[in-house]
Structures are given as C-alpha cells and as structure tokens.
Nucleic acid binder design. Structure first.
Lengths: 342, 342
DNA sequence: TTGTAGGCGTTATCAG
DNA sequence: CTGATAACGCCTACAA
C-alpha cells in the first residue's frame, strides 16, 4: 500500500516531506530541478492536498461565512454573488447559511459557521442578538454588518445609509410636487433597514409638508399587489407611491396595470434597489439604485485584507443614487381617484 | 498557558481526551454525571471544536460544494436556497462557487471545491468537460447534475425533462389553436437545458403543424424586451410567444405593454420557471412550473444519504407542470398585426 | 465506563 | 538548498 499525501510523494521522489511542502507552497528556496521533479510526481500520482490537514497545521481555513435571511430574494443573491466572485479571486471560499427568514436562527447559524472553521462572518443588517455578539466576541471572530453603514454594537458596517435613502426618495417626490404619498414597505419587525428607510422618509416628509400613508406588506411581488389593491380601493387620495423595495414596486405596477391606472400619469411610482428588470418595465421604474455589487466587493476586500494583512476593518458608507426613469412625474389633480372610477 | 481543545478539557475535568471526545460526539457509553461535568466545563471555557482537526481525523468535512453559473439569476438562487436548507438540517454546509457564466471556469471551480474538502459536488446541467469529469472520477468524488434528468457522462441527474417541457408547452399552445408561434430563448451555447427545451418544442411543433420562429436572446429581462421588440416590428405574423424562461417572458410582457399589445387578446404568452412574480403579473403568466425547490431538497437528500449511509445516488426525474393563468388564450385572427398598427 | 497511545496530512523550526 | 521532527486538535482501536 502506497503512502498518501506528501509522505507518499517524498518516498516517490526520494526527497523529504519538507521539500514537498515547500514546492506545494511555492516557497522560493527550492532548486528548480527538484521542484520540477516534485511537480511531475504530483501529476503522476494525481496528488491532491488535504485542506483539513493544512488548516490544522496553519490554523487558516481560507473560508468565510455569510448568513442571510434567504437566497430567494434577489437582493441577497446579487450581493452574495458579488461577494463570492471577489472572494474566489482572493482564494477564499464562501459558505452560506440562511436563517430562513427567522432571526432567531441567526445565532445558531453563525455558530455553525464558526464551528466549521469560518475565519470571518458576514451578517445582514445592524441588529443582532447579544448572544450572537457574545459568540463572536468570545472567539474574537471578525464580522461585518452589511446593507447598513453604522451599527451600535461595535461591529463594522459596510453598506448604505438607509435613512438617507428614504429621505432622498421622499424629497425627490416632494420636489416633483407630490404632497400625498403612500409608502409601501416590507416587514419592519426584524428588519432595521426597512425601519431606517421609513424613518428617513418620515423626516423628509415632515420637512417638505408631505402627508404619508404607511402601508406594510410582505417582501415580495404578491405583497406589492395586495398593498396596491388596498391603496387603490381604500385610500385613493394619493399622487405617488414610494415602494421601499423594487419587488414590491413590481406588484404595484402589475396591480396598477390591471386597473388601468397609468403610471406616471395617474400615479407616480418610485422604487428602491434597482433590480434587473427595473430599467425595462413599462414604464421603466424610477428607483434608488443600491450599490449591491460594490458592497459585496467591498465586504470581501475588507475581510480579506484583515485576514491576510491584519488591516483593520473599517466601516464603509457606499452612496446610493436615485435613477430617474419613467415612473415618476408631476401629480395631475385627482388623477388616481378619477382613474379608479374609470 | 492553558492547553487548548479536548486536551485542555481533559485536564480541567481530570478526565481523558477520549471521554471528552465521546461526549463531543454524543457517544452513548459515557456516564451521565461525567457527561454533565464535561458539558459544563465546555461551557465554562467556551470550548469550540476544531473542524479541521476533526476532518483530518475522520476524513469527513460535512461540506458539499455547488457550482452554478451565477447567483444573480433567481432560478439558481432559489435552487441553492432549497439545497442549503435541506443540507443545514442534515448538518452539512454548502459552499458555493460561480463560473460567472463562463463554462471554462467550471473545472477550476470544481477543483477548488474538492481541494477545500467538499465531499460531493453539485453541478448545473448535463454538459461538462472531460477534464472535469476526469477530475471527479480520479478522486471518485460523488457528483450530481441538476436541472436535467439524464446525462450521457455517467453522472446521476436530478431534475426535470427539459425536452418534455418544451414539448408539452408547444402542444398546449397548439391545442389552444396557435399555429404560428415565436419561441424566445436564452443562449444555447453552453446551455444544454435550453437546447433540450428547444428540441422538444420543435418536435411538438412538427407533430401539431405549428410553424416556429426561433428568437435567441440574453437570459434576462432586457433580452426579453429586445426579442419582443424584434418580434413586434419585424416578424408580426404570430399569435403566441413561448418564452423558455420567465425572466425573458417578463421582458416580453413589458414590451407588449409599452406597445399596447394586449395579452392574451392580441397575443398569447407562455413562460417557463414560475418565478415569484409569475402569478402576480398583469395578466398572470401561464407558465411551466419547474420543481426548483423540490429539486434542491432531492439533491441534498440524495447526497446526504450517499455520504451518511452509502446509498447509491439515483437519477431522479421530477415532474414539471403547466400552470394555466391568464396569459394564454385562443388566437384571434391577425390580432397582433392589427395591434401593432394601432 | 474510562484511559492510553498512535495516527490523520501539513506546516514549520531547526539543523545540516 | 534539503532533511528530520515536533506540533496542530481530534478520533478511535485497544486496554483496563
């Protein structure tokens, strides 16, 4: 029976395991010829290094864990897609854990990730249980909160300013002349980002004399449809809808279409996210573009720098920007009310 | 300086590492009191097991790798979401690698996954380079192809029958009376699933006397919009559009809306996937529902059974079904042509 | 029920 | 430039 691993190669080449290890790690102090010899031996036996053994010896796993509510929402998927790409380029692996929408799972998932050997943890949002924070601290595990730009728990945050986003969005609408706007948003419990956006909207509305109708919904297209249905049948007296995420806006768009409510003539609609389809819809959606991909790259970069070079992890505030497309216009009298009756 | 790991606990409790290890692995042959003692000691020192060491000793990493083209397309994200959930319940971790849409990256990513210690590999589609297949075989690494239900490379497949899907879809359209339909599909190079669907469509069209117009596009909403634009301006003479994926159908829907082409009055539209929004659109999209989540669960289950119990990995064919909603109707004369002139 | 000791495949520290 | 050897933290016969 042949020996496995470096030992086998050592035997096969007549060299020592140390030398084998050196060529494995591209150490410079190896004779060119020796290296060739080892390399070809490796090819010959189809040698594959054992990551676990290496991890044990170096106490480096080159693995980073991320926990998100779900992969089924494209905003998280796009973010992780960017993270994965950047991490892969740096030789790190990404292992993903979902909470299945239940924040009470977060701590457990983080623990699993750590037990698995993750060298850093990527979290969603700024709010995390003390137990989770403790777990992180007790192993002093680097971690970063994403989709937000500040936290009150001491963890660095890489993301955007949700309150500012809400603020800018409502002001833009106000600047167009809207004074009665409905705000459709996802669940606020367990979602600090949504709460922050709402608070920004409220502040902006106060400044601009805009009267707000808040309307909660689930974070999916169906939620947008239901919310729109309610808006159109029970509220009516609004000139614009601000949807705090594009999936919800899509629902509003669909429901408006069904009711022959023309956007932006009868009603303006503004979203937030800038998803794949947002520029393509009819009409194209005016929305807040979130720097999702840049955020992913930035998170990956920060973590890798920290792990490889010991650089501190700084919070990063990425700018979001409103992209004007065709779904927002000046209000036209009681257009919606009229349209609803059509 | 305290000793780390099991050794430390052994010292702290006055027991041996073997006993510590036993409680760690919930072995039954350990005294209840002893167990308590160890457990509380573990809590006291905040013990965290070292996965690398365990992996090295047991040669089990409890990690499964998946490579997909991208996470940015919700069809993959939803699939992996299901995989992750099922795997997590079984105590396995999922590490994800993307090819960034370039099949030539696939082999490298698979190697990275294997080098990382993945115990099984999840692949997308049935087509894979010989180099990749060899790499898998030489380490006899279990792997499964997904989104397809058969392969010619010896690997098991868990998924649906793409040709049958295309076949059923076009026949349904034909049964509604459509004889001239445009098929909009994503890239065919490097995508066997799309090719299979097209072949099924062609066979069905032949059987039913349907004349087809094939129209390739990119696999996103924008692609659907462009294709629709071309269809509406240059082709015209069709009564239905069969979109081989829902994202593309969404583009068609948007473009039709922009041109005041009413679906399904002027034109029928049928999709494939059944995404989040498909039941909510205006009109709701008649589409082929792919068992994405079940597929994810099935893949996870098969792999886990194999790894834990040595059960063989069988190919699984999951049924897809057409879900009738509002976007397909009988053709009405030259409605589209008329509508285009409106 | 508990303890002892060897080994898992690499890395890294010394000498040579 | 190369070699011997001791960790790394855990598991698991085999003994007791």
């Amino acid at each position: 029976m042949k020996k496995t691993g470096v030992r086998g190669l050592a035997e096969a080449t007549g060299l020592s395991v140390a030398t084998i290890s050196r060529v494995l790690n591209n150490a410079d102090n190896v004779n060119q010829q020796t290296r060739e010899r080892v390399l070809s031996a490796m090819r010959a036996v189809g040698y594959a290094p054992n990551a676990a053994a290496r991890a044990l010896a170096t106490s480096r796993t080159k693995t980073i864990g991320a926990v998100v509510p779900t992969l089924a929402h494209s905003i998280f998927a796009r973010f992780l897609n960017a993270v994965e790409q950047a991490l892969a380029h740096e030789g790190y692996a990404l292992v993903i854990a979902t909470t299945e929408g239940r924040p009470e799972n977060e701590e457990r998932r983080v623990r699993e990730l750590m037990d698995l050997g993750a060298e850093a943890i990527i979290l969603s949002g700024a709010e995390h249980s003390d137990a989770l924070l403790d777990a992180l601290a007790s192993r002093n595990m680097p971690a970063v909160c994403t989709s937000v730009c500040e936290t009150s728990n001491g963890l660095p945050a890489i993301g955007y300013d949700n309150a500012a986003i809400g603020h800018a969005a409502i002001r833009r609408l106000a600047a167009c002349g809207h004074r009665r706007v409905a705000v459709v948003h996802g669940p606020v419990s367990d979602n600090d980002r949504t709460r922050l956006r709402i608070s920004g909207v409220e502040r902006g509305a106060g400044e601009m004399g805009v009267s707000l109708t808040l309307c909660g919904s689930t974070l999916d297209v169906e939620g947008g449809v239901s919310a729109a249905r309610q808006l159109f049948t029970e509220i009516g007296d609004i000139t614009a809808v601000l949807s705090l995420s594009d999936v919800i806006a899509l629902g509003v768009l669909f429901e408006a279409g069904r009711r022959r409510i023309t956007i932006p003539d009868d009603l303006s609609l503004m979203g937030c996210d800038d998803l794949d389809w947002s520029a393509q819809s009819a009409p194209p959606l005016t929305t807040v573009r979130l720097p999702t991909a840049r955020m992913g790259a930035s998170v990956a970069q920060s973590l890798v720098s920290y792990l490889d070079d010991g650089t501190g992890i700084e919070s990063v505030r990425l700018e979001a920007s409103i992209v004007e497309r065709g779904s927002v216009d000046r209000p036209r009298g009681h257009a919606l009310t009229a349209a609803s009756r059509r």
